[in-house]
Design a protein around this nucleic acid. Structure first.
Length: 596
DNA sequence: GCCGTTTTCGGCCCGACTGTTTTCAGTCG
């Protein structure tokens, strides 16, 4: 059983307890246990073999340890099951409606036996909610809007959509010119999460902030044309919905609180809770205005994030690491990674040209890459099985290799690797003959068909592809499409071990609909000693810009420049790849790709 | 249900905003 499965059961128990009217501490203890289990790297199933180890975790006592044992033994938890006899499982969906929390859910259940979003929607439409104590016409209206949103989408958008929207909002806010000191995007966008729920902005008014100045700033922002609905408008916070469905929160904060506010609004919530806990233990309290002493109300630090971390006896923690998944412990030990940056990247190892499904020629891609300052790229058009993408068969691949060699001479100033994104067939064999694979400088492999094989068969298929002596890079390893398609089901740890054994590099595909491997898997790859390559999978020269999303995802996976092979200069990069098999009748060194 | 350089009992992170209320409960991040 995975940690997240146990955490989910405990989390649901906590919500059900809260709906059931349990005292605050009881459900909080379940909530805290769930948060802890989903954040620690150790496998709880292993830890639970030793009761002392389990109860040494903060927030896990004898009682909770017993519950965890029960979940591990039976796959479920009796208290959760008992509560689900009292309430339908769909009651938890109601909590995802904006403006509805456990107390209102409990009330709706008590009064109307409303146990699903549909039940609540019906009551709201019939006007039956407005007369309940604590509700009103406005609440009813808001519930209807929330139901519509719930039914329309999961409420999250991809990182690229959020990044672009945020850029537009920020640009509009900056039109205030001298009236503001700065505007900074925070939240999960700043942490580079693969999907974003809403956008958070921090605005620092220029000079001494008066309510009048803040009001003027908010008045300007609320005139942003794409605003569909204003959700909240207070003294120092506004919140609104854009026509594309994204929610935006803007907070005005005085300059002296910039660091505390940035820390607070960047999150994650879990990281913040952990920091506040640490602050309390050290005799401080932390909020969005400052780190202060618990008693004297004396401000200890507030202007920069680094200052606050320093007072908490921690080095600065990069936003991408702030998920409470061990970064605070690593910071304590001085063991934080020195994260990779976009400037470290020297090449791009997956892209397509007009030969298959790309929009630009070999030359156009090469020139654009050279202009970005790259030292090398690999041209990786699809192989023949991917017919929808006009994949290349053996003959066309050989011709493409020749064209790439000629283009390299013409373009100059950049090394072009003749490569191919070779399809992994259903049985794990590769889509091109060995003698053609032998002609390629780099062999990248990936799956584009039979994505729903059962776990064991899919694992064997990928292992077979890795064991193929020509395979050097495993591209978009899990095949997921964010918000659209689940990853392939296979044993990732087995695959990573095979990659290390055979010197196969795994890809972090930077295309924002993929980001594959994802952050957690990249971290796992690093732990298992597997090298990573970050590639854009560009289908046009414009897509080279997507590299930033791949780097951000790698940073979330705790990767440093030395973990990523396309940060290496040409010669070192080549020696980091799996050596090509010797061709029969030739010396083993003859076909090694060389740094020309 | 957990936990203690304030505590073995009495708290549980904390502040803003809304909508309801007429001083505050509920929700959110």
């Amino acid at each position: 059983m995975e940690n997240r499965d146990i955490a989910r059961i405990l989390h649901e128990t906590a919500l059900l307890l809260e709906i059931d009217g349990a005292i605050i501490g009881r459900y909080r203890s379940y909530e805290k246990a769930a948060e802890l289990l989903s954040s620690i790297p150790e496998h709880v199933e292993e830890l639970a073999k030793d009761r002392a180890k389990l109860t040494s975790l903060p927030g896990i006592g004898e009682g909770m340890a017993g519950h965890i044992d029960e979940i591990l033994a039976t796959g479920d938890y009796s208290l959760r099951k008992k509560l689900l006899k009292k309430y339908p499982a769909t009651i938890l969906d109601i909590l995802s409606l904006q403006g509805i929390g456990p107390k209102k859910v409990a009330l709706l259940w008590k009064k109307f036996k409303a146990g699903s979003v549909e039940d609540v929607a019906k009551l709201a439409r019939e006007g039956k909610l407005r007369d309940i104590a604590g509700f009103g016409e406005k609440t009813e209206e808001n519930i209807l809007k929330a139901v519509e949103f719930f039914q329309r989408s999961s409420g999250r958008v991809r990182l690229d959509v959020a990044t672009n929207t945020a850029a537009e909002v920020a640009e509009y806010i900056r039109k205030l010119g001298g009236k503001i000191e700065s505007v900074t995007p925070a939240g999960s966008l700043r942490r580079g999460k693969e999907t974003i729920g809403d956008l958070d902005f921090l605005v620092i008014p220029a000079g001494r902030p008066t309510q009048k100045a803040i009001d003027a700033i908010f008045d300007h922002i609320l005139k942003f044309p794409p605003i569909q609905q204003v959700l909240a408008h207070g003294e120092n916070k506004i919140s609104f919905l854009l026509t594309n469905g994204m929610q935006v929160d803007v907070r005005a904060i005085a300059e002296e609180s910039h660091g505390a506010a940035l820390l607070y609004f960047t999150g994650s919530k879990e990281h913040n809770v952990a920091l506040r806990g640490r602050a309390n233990a050290m005799g401080y309290t932390l909020n969005e205005y400052a780190l202060s002493t618990l008693k004297g109300e004396r401000h200890v630090a507030s202007k920069t994030e680094a200052e606050i971390y320093a007072k908490l006896k921690l080095p600065y923690i990069e936003p991408e690491l702030r998920e409470n998944t061990g970064e605070i412990e690593a910071a304590e030990k001085g063991a934080l990674p020195k994260l990779i940056t976009l400037d470290d990247i020297r090449g791009d190892l997956q892209m397509h040209t007009t030969a298959s499904d790309g929009h630009n020629s070999i030359e156009e891609m090469a020139e654009a890459a050279r202009d970005l300052g790259y030292e090398y790229i690999a041209l990786t058009d699809h192989s023949k099985s991917v017919t929808v993408a006009n994949g290349l068969d053996e003959k066309r691949t050989l011709a493409q290799i020749k064209k790439i060699r000629e283009a390299e001479k013409r373009v100059g100033g950049i090394r072009l690797f003749a490569s191919s994104e070779v399809d992994i067939l259903k049985d794990g064999s590769l889509d091109l003959h060995d003698d053609v694979l032998a002609e390629l400088d780099i062999v990248l492999v990936s799956i584009h068909s039979y994505m729903n094989l059962e776990r064991a068969e899919m694992t064997d298929r990928i292992l077979a592809a890795i064991e193929n002596p020509y395979t050097q890079i495993l591209a978009h390893p899990t095949g997921r499409l964010i918000l659209k398609r689940e990853p392939y089901d296979y044993d990732i740890e087995k695959v990573l071990d095979a990659c290390r054994k055979h010197g196969v590099v795994v890809e972090c595909n930077a295309a924002p609909e993929r980001l594959d491997f994802r952050d957690a898997n990249l971290r796992l790859a690093k732990q298992r000693g597997v090298k990573v390559v970050i590639s854009t999978d560009a289908h046009s020269t414009a897509h080279f810009d997507l590299m930033k999303y791949g780097v951000q995802t790698a940073r979330r996976g705790w990767l440093e420049a030395h973990d990523v092979v396309n940060t290496f200069p040409l010669k070192k990069f080549l020696s980091a790849l799996r050596p090509k098999p010797a061709r029969s009748g030739e010396h083993s060194t003859a076909r090694k790709a060389t740094a020309r």
